[in-house]
């Protein structure tokens, strides 16, 4: 049954290759479309720019607390994905039947590991989607 009401952000997660990224504290899906500005001397009006939709792109980013013994995806997995240039099937979903999901194949394009004294070690990472991002309903 689809999630009722406002979706709890905790339940929306990034699954990399079918397994969730472990100990995530936040994740973001960004889909953008650039606009082709059109402005010529023949354009109507007084200098108002017209826009037409252009190229589309998407990224998925996440941040989590670093752990090596989680059964889910670890920071090492993300580093290896970046280092090897391995394409990963990425799914942004609650994994609840009836809810919307977004899916695409992408590469890990950014990985960090931060460690401050007496604070949790964290690992922000970003995936750049290669090709189309599709959306559907979990069934």
């Amino acid at each position: 049954m689809a999630t009722e009401g406002i979706i709890n952000g905790t339940n929306l997660r990034i699954y990399a290759g079918g397994t969730v990224i472990g100990n995530a504290t936040s994740c973001t899906l960004t889909v953008s479309r650039e606009m082709r500005e059109i402005l010529t001397k023949d354009s109507p009006g007084n200098g108002w720019t017209e826009n037409k939709p252009g190229r589309k792109s998407g990224t998925l980013s996440t941040e989590g607390l670093a752990s090596t013994d989680t059964a889910n995806r670890t920071p090492k997995y993300l580093f290896d994905a970046l280092n090897n240039g391995t394409p990963i099937v990425l799914r942004f979903t609650t994994d609840v039947v009836g809810d919307t999901y977004w899916e695409g194949s992408g590469y890990c394009s950014s990985f960090e590991s931060t460690a401050a004294v007496e604070e949790n070690a964290t690992y922000p990472a970003e995936f750049t989607v290669h090709g189309a991002i599709t959306s559907g309903t979990e069934s």
Binding site: Y15, T19, V20, A71, T93
Partner: peptide, 21 residues
């Protein structure tokens, strides 16, 4: 819940995976 070793998973591990997986 993993029952037999698979990849880096060992029996008893409880990964969170998509329903398809």
């Amino acid at each position: 819940k993993i029952k037999i070793p698979h990849g880096r998973w060992v029996p008893g591990n409880m990964p969170d995976v998509t329903r398809q997986y």
